[in-house]
Structures are given as structure tokens and as C-alpha cells.
Simulated scan of single mutants.
Amino acid sequence: MLAVITGATKGIGKAIAEVFASEGFDLAICARNENELVEFSTQLQQLNPDIQILYKAVDCSNRDELLAFVDKVLDRYAKVDVLVNNVGLYVPGSVMDEEDGMLEQMIDTNLYSAYYLSKYFTGGMIEDGQGHIFNICSTASIKPVVAAGSYSISKYALMGLTKVLREELMHQGVKVTAVLPGSTLTASWSGTTIPGSRFVLPEDVASAVLNAYKMSEGAVVDEILIRPLLGEV
């Protein structure tokens, strides 16, 4: 069994990689920083010596680099069982005030990466009649974050892609799930004085993804919405 995870060395992506590795999945992971990929892969291999780990440094906003990752994975594996489109770019700013080009950056990273990987990895899933795609959306996919206009637009678009994929693939045996975390305690909150109890933890998201994957063949979780108990930070 193979799980492909983007943005896998930090936060939610890292936690998801860890839980699938612990379940005996081989992993194909990517992130921007090769040194972090090497370090994380080594840690995972030590904890899970029976699995194989393929990694590649990829700027997921770059289509050519993304498709090179696809080729590397498919050169080794006949098919992907689980695809987690986790990579994301968040830059705060209102639509009226942000620099030109910010929306394009968000769309390239947050939407097109999921679009291309879903398009090119699902062939094997369809042939096999099973597979699962998880798109890591956001609560910003259903309620705009005023201080993050382009980010919200990109996450609304990712939610739209998820819904389209769900309709297109359901009769092929391929499940598609949108994951919508609220404020999650990742590296982007480094240095905050807000108590950790006010956040969702990456491990919470990872366990929810794994549980959704373990549903029976005839069941699918369309959306996983996880919020901090006391509301968004």
C-alpha cells in the first residue's frame, strides 16, 4: 500500500505521514527542503523499518517539478492507494491591499498542485477500483478569513475541486474527502503565547484522516470539519 503526501515534513502533512507509516504504508513524500526530507525520512525509517520511503524536493507551485514527482512515483509503483494533497501556502492580506500576483501564487500552490496530482495519480486507482484522495482544505473553504483574502479564494477553489472529484470518481470506486481544519498548532504559530489548548493539533487531523480511510468499502466521509473547542484563534 502506498500513500503520497505533499508538504510532508511539517505540521499536518508530517502527522499524516507518521500515522500512515505506522500502519505499514510505503510513503512517497515531497516538500521544498531536501534536508528536511532526508531527516524526516530517516526518522520514519528507523521507527518503521519494514516500509519503503520515496522522497523528492518539490516546489508544488511549479507544474514541471510536480509532474517530475509524479513520474518518479509511478516509475517505482504501479498505483497510489492514498493521495493526501496537503501542501499549502498562507500569506495574510486583504484582496484590496495585497500585492499583485498573490492570488496566482496561492492558486498555483493550493489548487493546481491538488488538481494535477489528483489527475495523474487516479488512473491506477480507477483501474484497481479503489483508492482515496484527501484534500486538506480549511475552515476558510466555507467561511472567508477577512485578513487572508487570496488564501480564502484558493481554499474555496480547492473545496470546489474536491466536490467535482467526488462526483466524477464515486462510480469508479475512488473515495474523495475534504478535510477542513480550523486553527491548527503548526510551525506558522511558532512563538505564540496563546495556549496550545486553544488549537487543533496536527495529530487530531491525522487521526481523523486515518479513521476516514478505514471506513468500510461502501462508506465515504465527504467532509471532516475540525475546529478548536473554544472557536478560531
Rank of each mutant, 00 (worst) to 15 (best):
residue 219 A to C: 07
residue 93 G to P: 10
residue 202 P to F: 11
residue 104 E to G: 00
residue 104 E to D: 10
residue 77 Y to I: 02
residue 225 L to I: 14
residue 150 S to C: 15
residue 14 K to G: 01
residue 73 V to W: 06
residue 62 N to F: 03
residue 112 Y to A: 00
residue 192 T to W: 13
residue 120 Y to K: 11
residue 57 A to G: 14
residue 66 L to M: 14
residue 66 L to H: 05
residue 233 V to K: 07
residue 43 Q to G: 05
residue 148 A to P: 13
residue 80 V to R: 09
residue 37 L to K: 14
residue 139 T to D: 04
residue 172 Q to V: 00
residue 75 D to R: 13
residue 102 M to Y: 00
residue 11 G to K: 03
residue 212 A to F: 11
residue 39 E to Q: 12
residue 223 E to H: 07
residue 152 S to L: 10
residue 26 D to L: 01
residue 41 S to Q: 06
residue 114 A to I: 06
residue 157 A to K: 03
residue 150 S to G: 06
residue 117 L to K: 07
residue 213 Y to H: 15
residue 139 T to K: 12
residue 130 Q to N: 11
residue 170 M to R: 15
residue 140 A to F: 07
residue 175 K to T: 08
residue 26 D to M: 06
residue 44 L to S: 08
residue 95 V to C: 12
residue 196 G to K: 11
residue 216 S to H: 13
residue 190 S to A: 14
residue 12 I to D: 00
residue 81 D to S: 13
residue 111 L to M: 03
residue 114 A to V: 05
residue 92 P to C: 06
residue 178 A to H: 08
residue 83 L to V: 13
residue 82 V to A: 05
residue 213 Y to W: 15
residue 207 S to N: 12
residue 64 D to Y: 09
residue 146 V to T: 10
residue 139 T to V: 14
residue 9 T to N: 12
residue 34 E to H: 13
residue 125 M to P: 12
residue 25 F to I: 03
